[in-house]
Amino acid sequence: MNAEHRSRNMYLFLFVLVVVSTVAFQGWRILLNNFAVEEGGFSGLDMGIVQSVREVPGFLALLAVYLLLLVREHRLAALSVMILGAGVAAAGLFPSVWGIAATTLVMSFGFHYFETMNQSLTLQYFDKAETPLVLGRLRSVMALTNILVGGAVYVLARWMGFEELFALMGGVAVVGGLWALTRDPTSKNLPPQHKKMILRSRYWLFYVLTFLAGARRQIFVAFAVFLLVQKFQYSVQDIIVLFVCNNVINYFANPLIARAVNRFGERKVLSLEYLSLVAVFTAYAFTDSAWVAGGLYVADNIVFNFSMAIKTFYQKIADPRDIASGMAVGFTINHIAAVVVPFMGGLAWMADYRIVFLGAVVLSLASLVCVQFMDGQLRSLSRD
């Protein structure tokens, strides 16, 4: 099988799994906050607990490497999407804190293990120039899928309740995962992957940037939409409109970001991300405008796509046999802080919600400093 044919088969495989997993996960994201507030009567602390539980599987992503001793990467990707769908489908049945936490845990195991396999397969099957473009295209596909899901939920919410909507969105992922189990897009010509956890000192910058990104991102994921719902009284329909606007922009922006990574390099792209996030999170802390807060949510999502440069940086410095292990270890490092941050953020929220977003400013500044070492490391490895 030539390289082009091999890449095309893998792209189609990942394309389908990305679409169906996005349907389930985006449906869950759209519905969760309103479901939690309207049906579960959640406080900020309750939401922090659920979001902390959601990140436990990410912390355990390194176990995916050991699962590869039992099942091949592409099959683990398909099974993970089915588990993601099952968790989402069951979410509407249990409106209590611990019920939502339990279904979230199931969903999250599927989500994080699929993302680990998705990133690993992408970095293995596409070369260093193609990878940013493939990542950009798949993120555009996600954005388009998010738009369609938002529109579907907006319409269906008139006739269906939370329980039926969760079941429908999760069912799509289960069916897509079943399809993927019947496919084998892999090639035997690639370097075999290590099936154990690999930690190397030369990857230190990837580890640090991944850790900071995980902590900072969880502040956004756990509390940005919650702020819109609790403080600014956004309805389900308001959140859907916001998501659709965000994803329309992302659909066009992601290919441009991917080309920018190839043209300007990872350091410059990530520096722009972190500078932008300092401004965004500072504004979150002090705005009293519902319109401004919604605009900040869209801006944060656009800037988040720049983070693909962390993965392409790793691809450039990594031994090809370390890719699967590196993605699993990266997910675990990303979630070390992510398991704790939502809970601690929930406690801080009770004192003053501004503390939560100012903490994200500090993390963004730390990332900005660290990323300046990136070009030096690339030059050092090229000499070796």
Rank of each mutant, 00 (worst) to 15 (best):
I83H: 00
F162R: 04
V174Y: 01
F42H: 00
G345A: 08
I30F: 06
L93G: 15
S80K: 03
F264M: 08
S187Q: 04
Q233D: 14
E163W: 03
Y353I: 07
A290Q: 07
Q315V: 03
F25E: 14
T312Q: 04
I323P: 10
A324Y: 09
V81G: 03
F373T: 06
Q193Y: 00
V329L: 15
T103R: 00
T122K: 11
R354D: 13
G326E: 02
F59E: 11
V261K: 00
V65E: 10
T116G: 14
P185L: 00
R216N: 10
G265M: 06
L67S: 14
L121Y: 01
V20Y: 05
T312I: 00
L228D: 06
L365P: 14
R379N: 12
L133M: 01
K311T: 07
A102C: 10
R321L: 04
V292N: 08
Q51E: 14
L31T: 04
V341Y: 10
V298K: 05
F211W: 09
I147K: 00
V18F: 15
E115F: 13
V244C: 12
K311R: 04
L156R: 04
T122L: 14
F206S: 04
F15N: 13
L168V: 11
D319S: 08
V106H: 07
M197S: 15
L256R: 04
A338D: 09
Y274A: 06
A279M: 03
I30H: 07
Y284H: 05
